[in-house]
Simulated assay, not measured.
Amino acid sequence: MTITTNDVQTCANLSRLAIDETTAQAYAQSLDKILAMMDVLDGVDTDDIKPLANIHEACQPLRADVPNPAIDRDAFQAVAPHAQDGLYLVPQVIE
């Protein structure tokens, strides 16, 4: 499969992005290289390989979720744009 400059410009148009011909050509070449690498990876025999849940084959230890008395909440909230009753107030993003 080959990605053409026209393919890149069509995707950019659908995404409402403006890109010039030179940039579209560079993106097409980069995407072709990525797809070529995927073809190489697709050819690797993984039949006898067990899937990993973690690449380190170990669990990452998590720190205890306990309050840190060294953190001065009032000092941090004093410089916040909006804070009330110990909470940071942010604009609503989902209606």
Rank of each mutant, 00 (worst) to 15 (best):
R63T: 13
G43Y: 00
G86C: 02
L41N: 09
S30M: 15
F76V: 11
P69N: 00
I49A: 01
Q25P: 10
V66T: 14
A58P: 05
Q92W: 05
R73V: 15
A58K: 13
V8Y: 11
D72R: 05
L89W: 10
A36K: 08
T46D: 12
Q29I: 01
D74Q: 07
A53Q: 15
A36P: 00
A80I: 01
F76M: 14
P61I: 04
D7V: 15
P69W: 00
L14N: 11
I55F: 09
M38P: 00
E21F: 00
A53K: 10
H56G: 07
M37H: 06
I3M: 06
G86T: 09
A70E: 05
H82M: 11
A58F: 07
A53I: 08
A53T: 12
F76L: 15
R63C: 02
I34P: 00
V66P: 02
V40K: 13
T46F: 09
C59M: 03
A70W: 07
M38R: 14
L14W: 05
I55C: 03
T23R: 06
P69E: 02
D85Q: 08
E57D: 15
A28H: 12
T46I: 15
A58V: 12
Q92Y: 03
T2P: 02
A36R: 06
G43K: 00
K33S: 15
A70S: 11
N13M: 13
I3N: 02
L62K: 07
N13Y: 13
S30C: 05
